[in-house]
Nucleic acid binder design. Structure first.
Length: 489
RNA sequence: GCCCCCAUCGUCUAGUCUGGUUAGGACGCCAGCCUUUCAAGCUGGAGAUCAGGGGUUCGAAGCCCCUUGGGGGCACCA
């Protein structure tokens, strides 16, 4: 009988979350959902100097967009709150006091300048930088001086005597460190706020977190956390260090790798389902072939023993492909709604407003298998919304044709279109094909010409369906204009 | 500099625990088919001496050792 699964995503509101952060959240979420566990969001806002306004909102919006819901945390609350560390300061201060009383921590009055100088010196001597325990035993006299000067101390954790510290990492197996290589790190800052180490350890315990699943960059701080748990007399949770998401140069993902905020992926036109499917595959796999998976499949099959150890480069081209797969698997209705919602949020200048759902409903199927991102939709459909096209005469004239034959073909097509009783793709194809062979033009020539005349471009959705959606009047008008453009050239 | 982690096609990965088919799949790339364009789809192809070197073994991508390479960490940041 094991304890219930309780995992958390603990972002720091110092900016917008990127793919790496969110992938960590996703793995935690998948793990919780697959094991009837709880997924908790905790905001680690202990650095007052780096707080970014609206960062919390951005983080939560990102999670919401991807349908990663949390059982406890901001907005929803929960029995282990508050879920903002800035609202739990007394807990940390009390714990720090307890550690000091138990001889596991001490006050340090060293100035930032001295510490910096010390590190500089250590680096120069090619030694591992670390606190020199200058304040471990401060003489009473000195202590009085510090207090008279009004100096405010930090609290440092006192590393115990040399020993081997070992963690059984769920993903990496056994990892050990020598404690003497770790220094007396700060647990409580002079502003009364805890550092990450203290707050994280205390909260994970208080919130009864069962598994700490975090990025590999935290692996080196795990021995410190283990030491803290022991000094505090607390049972540590299980740890699993997830592989990192790397930039194209294989280094840690950062601002300089370009578009990193998760909400930018929304703006770039990716579908949340496609993006989560893709992220799930960054460091995890179901088997040797399954790639397209819905939420349920992901939740039911996700397991930590299939998470790889090595970092993964984020590959946009494959995401584009996968996004396209999701478009193709959609119903035309859903596709229409998606495009509509996207244009609503990110208006495109080429698209006529107000948006007409019925019209778009007829257009959407024509671009469905051509779409990679929602952002592409406006470029692919703009000619449906423009009232007048601009023609390049040389684009109208097809290979093996000239101005005269082009004009003549357009005249003929115009009368065919105008005289056609019905105006649907099937009829149009039948009649225009007949006309094409009558004019002794290849499909490439004749339909290419009509395509440019009706859509203004050499590339478009299938011609006859496109014409049907455009309607007789518009097609007729556009072809006349094309004839005029030819005449004027 | 010190500590830790990692290492299979360009990229994401399967296979490693429990040595034994031409090392499998996907993206991308190339070619062909389909075709009114672009896509999509279908078929085929190129692409990994499993980082390198030593062992162990009848047999090593897999087990052991060494080396190299890459990454992460060493703050009153998380």
């Amino acid at each position: 009988m094991s304890a219930p699964v309780r995992v958390r995503f603990a972002p720091s509101p110092t900016g917008q979350p990127h793919i790496g952060n969110v992938r960590t959240a996703l793995f935690n979420w998948l793990f919780a959902r697959g094991r009837q566990g709880k997924f908790i969001v905790r905001i680690e806002d202990t650095d007052q100097t780096r707080l970014v306004p609206d960062a919390v909102e951005g983080i939560l919006d990102g999670l919401r967009w991807l349908d990663i819901d949390w059982d406890e945390g901001p907005e929803v609350g929960g029995p282990y709150g508050p879920y903002f560390q800035s609202e739990r300061l007394d807990l940390y201060q009390e714990a720090a006091r307890g550690l000091m009383e138990g001889g596991h921590a001490y006050n340090c009055y060293c100035s930032p300048e001295r510490l910096q100088e010390m590190r500089k010196q250590q680096m120069k001597e090619q030694k591992t930088p670390g606190y020199d325990r200058c304040c471990l035993n401060i003489p009473a006299q000195k202590l009085r001086e510090y207090k008279d000067e009004g100096r405010v101390p930090v609290v440092r954790f006192k590393m115990p005597d040399p020993e081997e510290i070992t963690v059984q990492d769920i993903i990496r197996g056994e990892v050990s460190w020598r404690s003497e290589l770790l220094d007396d790190f700060v647990i409580l800052k002079s502003d009364g706020f805890p550092t990450y180490h203290l707050a994280n350890v205390l909260d994970d315990h208080d919130m009864e977190i069962s598994h700490v699943l975090r990025a590999e960059e935290w692996l080196p701080s795990t021995p410190r956390h283990l030491m803290l748990y022991r000094a505090l007399g607390l049972e540590p949770p299980l740890f699993g260090h997830l592989p990192m998401i790397l930039g194209p140069d294989r280094s840690k993902l950062s601002k300089r790798h370009g578009a990193t905020s998760i909400l930018e992926y929304k703006e770039m036109g990716y579908l949340p389902k496609a993006l989560t499917n893709f992220m799930a595959l960054l460091g995890w796999s179901l088997d040797d072939r399954t790639e397209i998976m819905d939420r349920r499949t992901l939740v039911e099959n996700f397991s930590l023993d299939r998470v790889v150890k090595s970092g993964a480069i984020f590959n946009r081209e494959k995401l584009d492909w996968m996004n396209g797969v999701y478009f193709r698997n959609m119903s035309p209705e859903e596709l229409t709604e998606r495009i509509l919602a996207y244009w609503e949020e990110f208006p495109a200048s080429q698209i006529l407003r107000p948006l007409d759902r019925g019209y778009l409903m007829r257009i959407a199927p024509l671009i469905q298998e051509r779409l990679k991102t929602l952002r592409d939709a406006s470029g692919l459909t703009s000619f449906f919304f423009q009232s007048e096209l601009v023609y390049e005469p040389q684009e109208l004239v097809q290979k093996g044709m000239d101005l005269k034959t082009t004009s003549a073909a357009l005249e003929q097509a115009l009368s065919t279109i105008d005289s056609s009783v019905t105006f649907d793709a099937e009829t149009l194809e039948e009649r225009l094909r007949a006309l094409g062979s009558e004019l002794d033009l290849s499909g490439r020539q004749f339909f290419g010409l009509l395509r440019v005349a009706t859509t203004g471009s050499k590339v478009s959705p299938p011609l006859f369906q496109t014409m049907e959606v455009l309607g007789r009047d518009r097609c007729s008008h556009r072809i006349s204009k094309a004839i005029e453009a030819l005449a004027a050239s």
